[in-house]
């Protein structure tokens, strides 16, 4: 699409309205049986993530074990949805997760800055896919987006999507750098038109990350895109969601914006590392009736 066509997509967002709507999601009280169901669902939607320069094969294997066995002391727990690692650790993760159903996601395209040439980004993607990644998390070029070069962003996403082959593509907008909800909405629309399977808020390296207003804006973009094209796109808020209560509020928001169809890890994910243990502590609290401490849960 040409830059002018993409400029024409811009839709203003009512920020006050979004914030009021979000405030209402946060007053919901979810208790007992519904809470347990919601917590298990949230656990099953987590992309357990380690994206540090000091990651090692051992750390990745340990996290994969946690992904498959979140907390064996509690019966009937689901696995998490996926583990998310750098491309160099994909092979280790694929091997560790064999047969478990837990997906492997790789961040690619010069994550987290995205400041590299198209050639290198495509090669990065290909390395991840060849190593067996089921999903690719790419970052958009925020600099190009913010300077109005929308067709560059569009073409880049389309090119990476092609390089992904069968792997599902998550497009990270890095909303903390986009400044306004108008930009978030515009970037979401561009990403979905260019072929994103998921849109994702953040890399987790920039704060603010997945705030509820941003997530709601993106969910509404997904809803409108679905009405216009009939195509479902997934959503992944990432970064900043570390407490169960916030995760449950996010699930309420998904249900009331997109409906039940999106309430599975096929279409909704949490990108988080510390959320898993908080969810597990809450589940243990529900099962045992007393507040839990991190000493009794495996580190991830």
């Amino acid at each position: 699409m040409t830059n002018n066509q993409l400029i024409a997509l811009k839709r203003p967002i009512d920020q006050v309205g979004v914030e009021e709507r979000v405030a209402r999601f946060q007053t919901r009280s979810i208790k007992t049986e519904a809470k347990i169901q919601g917590l298990k669902m949230a656990l099953n939607m987590i992309d357990l993530t380690t994206l540090e320069g000091k990651d090692t094969a051992g750390k990745v294997r340990q996290m994969c074990y946690k992904a498959m066995h979140p907390h064996d002391a509690l019966p009937d727990l689901p696995t998490v949805a996926a583990v998310c690692v750098y491309p160099t650790h994909v092979a280790t993760a694929v091997d560790a997760l064999k047969g478990s159903g837990v997906k492997v996601a790789a961040v690619a395209t010069a994550f987290p800055s995205g400041n590299s040439s198209r050639k290198i980004k495509l090669a990065d993607t290909k390395i991840a896919v060849d190593a067996g990644a089921d999903e690719v998390d790419m970052v958009i070029s925020r600099g190009e987006f913010l300077s109005g070069n929308y067709s560059f962003v569009f073409d880049e996403i389309a090119a990476i999507k092609e390089a992904c082959g069968k792997a599902r593509l998550k497009v990270i907008l890095e909303t903390g750098e986009l400044s306004t909800l108008d930009n978030v909405r515009h970037a979401s629309d561009i990403a979905m038109l260019a072929g994103a399977d998921f849109i994702k808020t953040s890399t987790g390296k920039i704060s603010p990350a997945a705030t509820m207003p941003v997530t709601l804006t993106m969910l509404e973009a997904i809803r409108d895109f679905y009405y216009e094209t009939g195509k479902m796109v997934g959503m992944k808020p990432a970064g900043g969601i570390s407490k169960s209560k916030l995760a449950l509020h996010n699930l309420v928001m998904v249900k009331e914006t997109l409906g039940d169809a999106w309430l599975s890890n096929e279409w909704f994910r949490f990108g988080a590392s510390s959320l898993a243990n908080d969810v597990l502590m809450q589940l243990a609290k529900q099962a045992e009736g007393r507040y839990q401490g991190l000493d009794y849960f495996s580190k991830d």
């Binding site: 007393r290 507040y291 839990q292 401490g293 991190l294 000493d295 009794y296």
Partner: peptide
């Protein structure tokens, strides 16, 4: 009860 049963105490 909560002062004494909390696992993080």
């Amino acid at each position: 009860e909560h002062f004494s049963s909390h696992m993080d105490v």
